[in-house]
Simulated scan of single mutants.
Amino acid sequence: MKQKENITLSVKNVSKLYGDGCAYCAETDAVLDKNVCPECRTVHACRDVSFDLHSGEILGIVGESGSGKSTLMKMLYFDQEASRGSYHISDYDTSQSNVFGLSSQAKRQIRNEILGMVYQNPVYGLEMDFSSMSNIAEKLIAAGSRNVGEMTGTGDHFLDKVNIPLNRKFDPPINFSGGMQQRVQIAKALSNYPPVLLLDEVTTGLDLSVQADVLELIKEIQREMGISMVVVSHDLAIIRMLCDRTMVMLNGEVIEAGITDQILEDPQHAYTQQLVYSIL
């Protein structure tokens, strides 16, 4: 029972289809051409994905481009609708409900109060022409804040935490480097103290030294704030550095999951073995 109470969010048999599907691909043992139904050509971007995220845990999701990991993250943040499956969040009042079935207003509340999201491309997470402080204020206002002084104090706190000079807090992110934009995104995502942070390929395209700074920042934030995190990456080295447990996705399905050290030391699936050997 204690283990169950420790679950922050739970995903069961979540699928995302592009197409109508057919009787053949509706079968759980249907053999697809990668993730495409050979009968009706429906694309199964995610297929019966299940996992639990525990309190204070960092869960990694690794896989190549097209494996379904980013689609899964978009469904968790309600950027896309799931075709089927259930999604439960313990910090939401109706935690017994499948939040995929909630109203758009309730989903916005969850996005504003429970979830933080950091996108691979900062354009999706920031208003690039607004100041960094205004971006944070936007998130706080959506979560119900109205006191300007409190919002300014929160903005200063988190911009300082992610190493954005406060003398640049009124600069728009469009004037920042890629690494700084990602750090502003992280500050914005953390500003309402969400219990869950979703990070989708946040270091892709950054210089190696900048990558290291962002990864160290993520680890520091998790230690200090105890936030549960889902980290998506195609790079197993990043997953190794950050994550307690790891799921490996291929062609829309979870092919292997377990404690990160176990996945790295004794991979069972041929694709995971290929990933692990590529970083040794």
Rank of each mutant, 00 (worst) to 15 (best):
D207L: 08
Y119W: 12
G179I: 06
I221R: 08
G116P: 07
E57R: 00
R41A: 08
A106Y: 01
S103W: 03
M151V: 14
V214H: 13
L197T: 04
G205D: 06
K34F: 13
T42Q: 01
L72M: 15
E81A: 14
E256C: 12
T203F: 13
K169H: 08
S97V: 08
K16G: 11
G153K: 15
D48K: 08
E256P: 09
S177C: 11
F51Y: 14
F78L: 09
E138P: 00
V62M: 02
K161H: 10
I141Q: 15
L280Q: 10
E150F: 04
Q182K: 12
L264T: 12
F51M: 14
L53W: 10
K188Q: 10
V162M: 10
M151C: 13
M247K: 09
S65G: 07
R223D: 11
E27N: 13
I238D: 00
V31E: 04
K169I: 11
I136Q: 09
A270C: 03
M73K: 02
I279G: 00
D93W: 02
G178W: 07
F130N: 12
K188N: 03
N175V: 09
P38N: 05
S67D: 05
D52C: 11
N175G: 10
S134K: 13
V276R: 03
N13E: 15
M247P: 05
P38Y: 06
S83D: 01
G149V: 11
G56Q: 12
S90I: 10
G179Y: 07
R223P: 01
P173W: 02
V162H: 05
D213I: 15
E64I: 07
A212V: 05
P38A: 06
T94M: 10
L208D: 08
D261P: 06
N112P: 02
S97K: 11
V148H: 12
